[in-house]
Design a protein around this nucleic acid. Structure first.
Lengths: 341, 341
DNA sequence: TTTCAGTTCGGCAACGTTGCCGGCAAGCGT
DNA sequence: ACGCTTGCCGGCAACGTTGCCGAACTGAAA
């Protein structure tokens, strides 16, 4: 039992032609039921597995999806698991690449996946990416792309995301309702759509509740715990320091928490804090941190489903844009007016 | 610019044969330097990319490594990144599958990867796995396997791991030195080698420092925060409750911490706690949790290097066993006698 | 008997690539 | 003029699979 069995082996053993075996295995109409049985039996015995390479070469389809993500943090790895689940079910294999938030790396990844002859892409763009030519070239070759989570108007493709504006809104609204007056926001890089949408939600909440917007309370910084830490220290050093902070991600919320503790301030009494993503760690730290949860797993599944639809009907699905709703998880860090739990 | 260019296109445009083009591209000796230049120039212009499927089909090598891991928690994803880095450098693509600690799923994964015609495997076995026939069958087909992290004597293959016995030893030794007298251990499932080695280290430390072993302080439970939580509650309900706990993983340490807090006990004064893996969360909770760090990234890189060696020299590398040293990171949860920091 | 439809099968080519073999011409020495 | 080496190149087959075409046989209708 050395080499795996091929169609040829079966044909030889049964003294019939390759074509007949092939047809029998694919259960084609024009093959005698006796020979069909014989072929099936022998293929079972030899433990025959069709060679995927030959198949792919022949029909120019690898049944492989290239997935590019900026990293594999909690939310994204959940999304990838969602993609994986649906893809496997549909007979696809997924290849996951991390761009590490680097533009160059993202280009490298697309090239590598292209070399691997993936049938298409499911992409969440890196925060560094400002040009989308590498993706547009792929689209010109009629290779399907689905964008998820980090969606951008600069790349026209079917997309799945959460309502980030809503997420920013409910987080801010909650802080306002808790009685916080000077609410700062730690936003991500300026060009990142996701971050800007959440910021927009923040602004909309201020507007609705007639809280005056203060530009000095809006800070852009990298999606990163350390940057958030230092940004928060600066915020807290202001003459009129904020009494609450909404961060665009939990990583940043952790950084903010550390800075707040460093300053000897208490949450939620002195400072309120709300993060985004609902990573498990937010429930473990002291105080636990309120956070906006998103249906990551569902979102991944939806992305994969949309991809498969796109493969089958490449006609204008480009305008399809699925949006899921986020949900606020309230914990200690923001409950100035208690009465919960 | 629709279909990607092939060798045939180049041959036709230059009026030469396929073979010549092929040789020119591979920089073979017996081809005129002028034609070589022409071919290279045209292939550049047409943006020629060799078709990997055809190549793989021809030379029966996909340059793909199948990686199977029980999950993608902090340590394992670091290891996978290490594998990825080395593999890419060496021209390999890796396909990662999660078994979710399930035996059936692990078998499914190996089958799928086998169908994808991977050149070999790098494996960390699931905690459920007690039979290794599915892997042995692969080895009989002369497909190389490298085992990492979760190594077992039941599967003879080149392996990379950390010194788990040492890890268990230094954690326990540290607790003893801090003056803890009744040290409990939350071990993993009984059949899991990694867990047993760490337990062995614990026992060795007790022996060295002449601390009497108390079987009621040794608890086996699933690698899981909830189980650890309940197991700890039981430990703390004992008449003579332990004054320190060493957990075999940080997940379990978190569970233990929650149980300790629930009981209203203080760390490190009432109870000492040391975990394993040094996940970032251990530094963020209050109190921060001491933990045994392992060089995960390095370990992944080593595994990939070993795999590549094995591919090139399949002769008896089976006895190769690389072992890396862990390192104790001391934080608040175990510092009864202060003076650190 | 001829014709025709239906059933069942084999042969050939193709997907894109490379390895092997052999051929042709030029250059060299005899 | 002959043979030998060397440099360069083309043809063929093969990897494992499937699609297309046509052949061979059967049985029945004309």
């Amino acid at each position: 039992m050395e080499k795996p069995a091929t169609i040829k082996d079966i044909a030889k053993r049964l003294n019939i032609s390759l074509s007949t075996v092939s047809r029998a295995l694919r259960n084609a109409a024009d093959v005698n039921s006796d020979t069909k049985k014989a072929v099936l039996a022998l293929s079972e015995e030899l433990n025959y597995q069709p060679n995927k390479l030959a198949l792919s070469l022949r029909q120019k389809q690898t049944h492989t999806i290239g997935v590019i993500v900026p990293n594999l943090d909690y939310v994204l790895s959940l999304m990838v698991r969602g993609i994986d689940e649906v893809a496997l079910e549909a007979g696809f294999t997924v290849m996951v690449c991390q761009s590490n938030e680097s533009f160059g790396r993202e280009i490298l990844n697309t090239r590598r996946l292209l070399e691997s002859l993936v049938d298409g892409f499911i992409i969440s763009v890196s925060s560094e990416t400002k040009s989308f030519e590498h993706f547009k070239k792929i689209q010109e070759r009629n290779i399907p792309i689905v964008v998820f989570d980090r969606v951008t108007p600069q790349l026209i493709a079917p997309s799945v995301r959460i309502d980030n504006e809503e997420g920013g809104f409910i987080a801010t609204e909650h802080l306002i309702e808790q009685g916080y007056k000077r609410i700062a926001v730690l936003a991500g890089p300026e060009n990142l759509g996701v971050s800007n949408k959440r910021l927009e939600g923040y602004l909309n909440a201020l507007k609705k509740y007639k809280v005056k917007k203060d530009p000095s309370l809006i800070v852009h910084c990298d999606f990163n715990q350390d940057y958030a830490y230092y940004a928060t220290l600066e915020l807290l050093a202001m003459k009129k320091r904020p009494d609450a902070i909404f961060t665009i991600s939990d990583r940043m919320a952790i950084g903010a928490m550390l800075a707040i503790k460093k300053k000897g301030l208490r949450m939620p009494q002195d400072i309120g804090l709300v993060g985004f993503n609902n990573e498990p760690v937010t429930g473990l730290v002291t105080p636990s941190i309120s956070s906006v949860e998103m249906p990551s797993f569902e979102l991944g599944k939806l992305a994969a489903k949309l991809f498969i639809e796109t493969m089958h009907h490449p006609e204008n699905l480009n305008s399809v844009e699925k949006v899921l709703k986020p949900k606020l998880i309230i914990r200690e860090s923001s409950q100035k007016n208690i009465q919960y739990k």
